[in-house]
Amino acid sequence: MGHMIKVNVNGKEHSGGVEARTLLVDYLREDLGLTGTHVGCDTSSCGSCTIHIDGKAVKSCTMLAVQADGCNVTTVEGLATNGNLHPMQEGFKEEHGLQCGFCTPGMMMTAIDFLKTNPKPSEDEIRHALEGNFCRCTGYHNIVKSIQYAANKMQTSV
C-alpha cells in the first residue's frame, strides 16, 4: 500500500507501506500499536502526540508518516531503559505530575527535549516551554515540579 517506509522506533527497525496521507501519529498507534502517543486535538495545539524525531520534540499529528522515513523516532514507550524509568518519568511519579495520564507522554517528551537545551531552567522558563502542551487535570503546578525534579536528577547523574 502506498509508500514503503523504514523507521527506527525506540531502537527497533520497522518497515512497511503507508498511505501518503497517514499521519505519523496514526502510523505509530494503528500500525505499530504504540498507543502511548495520544491524539487530543485536530489543530496541532494540545501536544498530547509529542514524540522525538532524531532527538527533537515534534507533534506527530502534524507530520506525515512518509516524512519519518529514515528517521529515528522515540515515543514514550522508549523512554525507560532496561526497566529503569527515565528521570523525567520518575519526576512525574514522584511529584504527582499526572492525574488522568492522557497528556503525560507528550508532556514528558517536550520536557526532555527542553532540558537538552536548558538543563537548569527557572520556573518561568519551564512554564514557557510547556506552551505547546495542554493539561486539564493538574493546573500544571506539579508538572513544573516534576520537570524540576528531572532536571536536578539529570544534573547530578551527569
Binding site: 498507543t35 502511548g36 512525574f92 507522554p105
Partner: peptide, 24 residues
Amino acid sequence: KSIKRVEDKRFITGQGRYTDDIKI
C-alpha cells in the same frame, strides 16, 4: 500520607489503555 500513586506506572510508560487504544 502522601503515598505515590500506584496507577502512575502505566501512564508514564505509555501503557495506559484508553478507549481509542483498544482494538477488537
